Amino acid sequence: MTRKRGKTGYLLVIPGALYLLAFFALPFYSLIATSLYDPSGSDFRGYEMTYAFGNFVDAITDYWQPLLRSLAYGGVATVLCLVLGYVLAYAIAFKAGRWKILMLVLVIAPFFTSFLVRTLSWKLLLADDGFIVNTLQFLQILGDDGRLLATPVAVIAGLTYNFLPFMVLPLFASLDRVDYRLIEASGDLYANPITTFFKVTWPLSLPGVVSGTLLTFIPAVGDYINAELLGNTNTRMIGNVIQSLFTDANDYPAAAALSVILMTMILALVLVYVRRAGTEELL
């Protein structure tokens, strides 16, 4: 009986393992191989495997600015999502009452609309003759010729909006498990609301904070739609460069090298972050 159960477990793993092999391992191997092709090839069939590790050096030398810009934009958007998402998740978990389910539905409602349509809506909102710009100009926050569209502000705003649900849902899952009696008990022990938050609520919600920041930062850094539609040539992110190298310039080795560099950098940052956050202890 024990043997049959053991074999059943392995059999259940096979479909998932085959899926990962077909759609992750093999494409990743192909990507690494492409990054080592001779960059002087005229087209994809003309490339030869020469183990040209210099492709990585050239990619960093030529495109270090959009690479750092992507990390900066993704980091700022993640921080904004954490601040906005924590407030929203806290309100849903502790204050929504019987409206909790409805508010959660409203959080995930944007997912029923295309990512492209949601980003294009920000293009309309931040237009030079739009309500937001006119209001900021009226309040003297923007000059008469000031604008928001085609600026870093627009790109970060789009990233924050599009990836906010990825932050809210893990935070809500953590906060919803917090026993509210612990918060009330800290008040009974004469702790003020700020002390209660940092000593009770925040530590208990850290698993959601770690999960939410990872789920937000990773796709935000690699995104290219927001920078393409809401930015300009000076706000191009690394995703835009990779897309252009693959589809316009047909420079497959450089595009693949940049992709591998981006994945490696994100993996290294995630490992350092998870290690510093003490995820094993949190979980």
Rank of each mutant, 00 (worst) to 15 (best):
A191C: 13
S186W: 11
G97N: 06
L171K: 02
Y63F: 15
G74T: 11
G231S: 00
F131C: 01
L206H: 01
G85E: 14
F56L: 07
L169G: 08
I32R: 02
T160S: 11
R69K: 13
L88S: 07
P203N: 02
S114P: 12
L82F: 10
L204A: 10
V168T: 07
D145H: 10
I218S: 09
Y47A: 06
G54S: 14
A220E: 09
V117H: 09
L171S: 03
V210F: 08
V200F: 08
A52M: 02
M237V: 01
I132Q: 00
W99R: 12
L283K: 06
S35E: 11
L104M: 14
W122C: 00
L80A: 12
T119W: 05
T235M: 05
I141W: 01
Y29F: 12
L262T: 15
F198Q: 01
F198E: 03
V168Y: 09
V241I: 15
T34Y: 06
D144I: 00
L26V: 15
V13W: 08
G187T: 09
Y19K: 09
P165L: 11
A52E: 07
Q137K: 14
L102A: 15
A185F: 03
D176L: 02
L262N: 11
L71I: 15
V133R: 00
N55W: 13
S259W: 05
S40Q: 12
D179L: 05
L12D: 05
L262G: 12
N162A: 14
G146Q: 00
P152G: 04
L84P: 01
T151F: 00
A25G: 00
N250G: 02
I60V: 15
A109W: 09
V168F: 08
W64F: 11
V13G: 10
A17D: 08
V210A: 07
Y10V: 04
L11N: 05
Y37D: 05
R181A: 15
L159E: 07
P152E: 06
K100W: 07
R5I: 11
A257W: 02
A25N: 03
I108F: 09
L159Q: 10
F44Y: 14
L84A: 11
L102K: 01
L11G: 10
I242P: 03
V260P: 04
E184N: 06
F197C: 01
P203R: 03
K123Q: 14
V155Y: 01
P27T: 07
A157V: 14
N250F: 15
L31E: 13
L148A: 04
Y37V: 08
T160Y: 07
L116N: 04
